[in-house]
Design a protein around this nucleic acid. Structure first.
Lengths: 343, 343
DNA sequence: TTGTATGCGTTATCAG
DNA sequence: CTGATAACGCATACAA
């Protein structure tokens, strides 16, 4: 231990200034009932002595950490990176810190993450659920203790847990309708586990659009996988086996849409003339692929901001009775060349 | 306060079992000198009573938080999302948690982030520096206290702070050499602030490759900007004004390379025949753009893992004397169609 | 193997 | 406006 210098405490400052530790504590917290003179003196000597407040002690005393926990399926996706950036900004501006973890799409890890957050005594929890989560018993310890649990994107219905999501149903309805208006009559839908509301609702929106346009829904036009890039390739092969070929494809994310589209292109299928394409998310690659991909702009950054703001609200109005309320964010369709047929 | 149930402490467990709190504490920590019988009994009643250990008290006592701080320029980039995912995995497996913040490329925010980390008493700090950081005085409080500060990607030379990066010089040298071998003689280099070692070294590698191939370095073939998508567009316009046109472009990131390439394509320039292209990073979009982009595979996930592992090592061997050592990760060139000329 | 006693550094309560 | 004092819950040195 070379740098074993003793950490300065409020007692050291108090001793030096011949005042009480209580006054030092108050002065440092800008308490109203401390004279300006002592405040200045205290803060000055504090920095001089290299004091840093001990959050452990403070937290222990105050019973709060000013830390918000975040549990998401995966940290490395465009969408999630944007979400996190938005959250960090808002939380930081409100003097909260963000502790993160990923469930890697499994409930087991999600449960262990939740326990870690519980022990770390986060003041609130922001959650987007794993692929296979079917109940949220692991969040009950938080709810029981009145620690706000807010779901976003991959949400779960539970009294007392606000949810933030976009109107997936409506977005899917709109984009499917758009494809139909472009002349599509046999539209494939590529989606993921219907356990997750986001995908179930996009599916429902797709179906409803077909119905409203008197197009018969066909089960064999629905492909269910994990929406990865690889899944896009496999989907393309499935599509190529269809007779007759579909004339439109609506994928529940861009990632999968893009690889699928690229394979079909290589097979000589013209986009959008033979098959019109639509995705979901508005990933950066959507404007790189040729033709550029029609999609739904899913603003991660904004969702992160909103979720964090709601959390701050909950934390500030702690005592007050606050009915669980959900927020539905606006999404917008972005029409690009992948679906635009020159009529 | 509806859910105002009292939190269970080790004292409550002790009372119930008519043993001492010390024994409970030891039992819960799996201390060797506690009988199996009491251990089982304690853990069982602990869960029964809904006990959760109080990390505030524990941290205060142990003087460590098991939290690692992360400060990066931006959270929302492909590279950084991968880095963070890698870090989270390793840290979580070692019972550490990750608290994150972004400097948004300014020193001021970086300083305030550092202070927050200091107060939060992180056990270690992982840092990738902001664009305009020229000194690291704000990390001195950590270094003074023997709290490991590890730089990755955007690093800084400082005794006692390990650095993790790839050999940018070599990677740039190789990729420039590759372009030359494809017949390029007038190669534009698009890069960013030379304050940051990563960019300076890529620049140096580019220059050296020219030199070794007897190609005269020309200042007016170097474009310096922030490597954003917009910068790519602007760069393309600059390129179009060059007489004669260059026959190769090496951009210090993919992002900028891709938009630049797209503009040039629209202007009727054939890639790679007229101008061969190379980027840096291997972003997902590199395999979406047409032609696919030749680039350097910069493995964020791996870098995150390595940085986290080094941190864990440092934390475990705390007392021991450990000379600051740096790690240079292997990078590999990925040759794709954007630079491959059919000879 | 278990118990006793103490301190970690802060903040809140109460009293002046 | 300031001071004394008592928790907050845990982990460890020491004793048994």
């Amino acid at each position: 231990m070379t740098g074993g210098e003793k950490e300065i405490t409020i007692y050291d400052i108090a001793d030096k200034l011949h005042i009480s530790a209580a006054t030092v504590s108050r002065a440092l917290k800008d308490h109203p009932r401390v004279s300006k003179k002592t405040k200045k003196l205290v803060t000055k000597t504090a920095t001089e002595m290299g004091y840093r407040s001990n959050s452990f002690a403070s937290n222990l005393r105050r019973k709060s950490s000013n830390i918000i926990g975040l549990i998401v399926p995966r940290l490395n996706s465009n969408f999630m990176a944007d979400v996190i950036a938005g959250m960090e900004k808002v939380l930081n501006n409100n003097n909260y810190n963000l502790i993160i973890s990923q469930s890697l799409e499994t409930v087991q890890k999600e449960i262990s993450n939740a326990n870690a957050m519980l022990v770390n005594r986060v003041d609130g929890l922001l959650v987007s659920l794993a692929y296979d989560t079917t109940n949220i018993d692991h969040f009950e310890p938080f709810i029981k203790r009145n620690i706000p649990v807010i779901f976003f994107d991959r949400v779960f219905d539970h009294d007392g847990c606000p949810q933030i999501y976009i109107d997936n149903y409506k977005a899917a309805y709109e984009i499917t309708t758009h494809l139909i208006k472009q002349g599509c009559k046999r539209i494939v839908h590529i989606t993921a586990s219907q356990l997750r509301k986001v995908y179930a609702e996009r599916f429902a929106g797709y179906k409803k659009a077909l119905e409203d346009n008197n197009i018969k829904f066909e089960t064999n036009l629905v492909i269910i996988n994990d929406l990865s890039s690889e899944a896009g390739i496999i989907s393309a092969r499935q599509v190529l086996k269809m007779h007759p070929l579909p004339d439109g494809i609506f994928s529940a994310n861009d990632n999968c849409a893009i690889t699928c589209m690229q394979i079909l292109k290589k097979e000589g299928i013209a986009i959008p003339e033979d098959i019109a394409f639509a995705g979901f998310n508005n990933d950066p690659s959507a404007v790189v692929v040729e033709p550029n991909l029609t999609t739904v702009n899913y603003k991660g950054y904004e969702m992160g901001e909103v979720a964090a703001k709601l959390m701050i609200d909950n934390l500030v109005n702690k005592g007050a009775f606050h009915p669980a309320h959900s927020l539905i964010l606006r999404s917008e369709m972005i029409i690009r060349e992948s679906s635009l047929r020159t009529q």
